[in-house]
Design a protein around this nucleic acid. Structure first.
Length: 153
DNA sequence: GCCAACGTTGGC
DNA sequence: GCCAACGTTGGC
């Protein structure tokens, strides 16, 4: 069992949208590092923090989902009307992958970015490291459990 | 809206 | 293979 964090802009797609839909295709990833993580490391049943970015004071970790389907070709890369078409991608050997995620829970409160940055036990947490722009990143078991506990406090 | 920090692209 | 230009992310 591994743990991850996925970023989303709540104005585009939020934890509340996920709570309503239950299951969602996590498409649109156009970064090779993230694609490789999806291809090689993200397994069904893995637990994932959902992080709301660009959300002002509400920026932070808002809940948990789990991986419902492992990496498969992202159909939006072949759709010229999608937000991120990739005309160079060959359907026989697709450039980009996506996974399906299933809603698990929304936290009672947001564990804010501000709070995560100020927490001395999280100085090694990828999310708060300078210059980190990955939209999907690994989270250690320790970090996952610690932050889950913070959300209850 | 600004801009720092990246990642990608393409000329050479 | 180098690197300048450009595009994107995301905090502020």
């Amino acid at each position: 069992m591994q743990y991850w964090l996925m970023k989303t802009e709540p104005s585009e797609f939020s934890i509340d949208d996920l709570a309503k839909k239950k299951l969602e295709m996590w498409d649109g990833v156009r970064n090779y590092q993230v694609r490789n993580m999806m291809r090689d490391d993200i397994k069904i049943g893995d637990l994932v923090f959902i992080y709301h970015s660009n959300a002002g004071a509400d920026t932070g970790i808002v809940g948990v989902v789990k991986i419902a389907k492992e990496a498969y070709p992202d159909p939006t890369q072949f759709d010229p009307k999608s937000a991120h078409p990739d005309p160079k991608s060959d359907p026989a050997n697709p450039n980009w992958l996506c996974v399906d995620v299933e809603f698990v829970k929304k936290f009672k409160r947001i564990v804010t970015l501000h709070e995560l940055k100020a927490d001395l036990s999280l100085t090694d947490f990828r999310l708060v490291k300078r210059g980190n722009r990955l939209s999907v990143m690994p989270v250690t078991k320790k970090e996952f459990e610690y932050i889950s506990k913070l959300a209850l406090s």
